[in-house]
Simulated assay, not measured.
Amino acid sequence: MDANKKILILGVGNILLTDEGFGVRAVEYLQANYTWPVRIRLLDGGTQGLMLMPEIQDCDLLVVLDVVLAGEAPGTVYLLKGEDLRKSLSFRDSMHQTDLLDTLITCELAGHKPDALVIGMEPFDCRTMGVELTPQAQARLPEFCRKTMDELARRGISPATEPA
């Protein structure tokens, strides 16, 4: 990947609904455990929808960390691109203001749509009110983040420093 390309790693989801906040928690983990070059920005996107347009339009590659409802066993990790993006909770009709696929379409209409992919996990529980992940999702967070780092490395993207 071009060393000048801007990359946005966006954690999305509602942190008030247990595992629905998994993407946000994954970004927090990546921020806490790695040092990132200036061209790579990590952001808690929460449930902001269209309000994320300026950040999305300012990147060349959008990597969304989210929960995915695709019918596999809880804890299954997915890599989604193209039409499969709708399997991500944030790319389908959700509690968010608008889904992220609509936001990407709006970005394209406004002049810039980045390449996008979702790295997500099938949740254990995303309906129960609670600010903590389920114990099962919490236990999988480090492994999920390692898989995220592996996928980024395949694309020539790596942090400045890795954890000890």
Rank of each mutant, 00 (worst) to 15 (best):
L117C: 07
V64E: 01
D115Y: 03
D19R: 01
D150C: 14
R86V: 15
T161Q: 13
K5Y: 00
H96R: 13
W36Q: 09
A153M: 09
V63G: 03
G13F: 00
M129Y: 15
C126K: 04
Y29E: 00
D44L: 08
A26H: 02
E122K: 06
D93R: 13
T161W: 07
R25A: 10
S90Y: 15
S88G: 14
P142A: 02
E108H: 10
K81L: 03
I7N: 03
S90C: 15
V67K: 01
L10Q: 00
E83C: 08
I119G: 06
A73G: 01
G156V: 04
P37H: 13
R92A: 15
L85W: 01
H112P: 01
R39K: 08
K6W: 07
P37T: 10
E108K: 11
T47G: 03
A73Y: 03
K5N: 02
D2Y: 02
D102N: 06
A73K: 12
S94F: 11
I157W: 00
R127L: 13
D58M: 04
D99H: 15
D84N: 10
Q136P: 09
G120L: 03
M53I: 14
T134S: 11
C126R: 10
C107D: 07
S90E: 15
L30N: 02
G21E: 00
L104F: 01
S90K: 13
C145A: 14
K81Q: 10
L100M: 09
L52Q: 07
L109T: 12
V24M: 03
I15T: 15
M95E: 14
I119T: 07
E83I: 11
R154L: 14
C107H: 05
H96D: 11
D93Q: 14
E151A: 12
L104Q: 00
A26M: 02
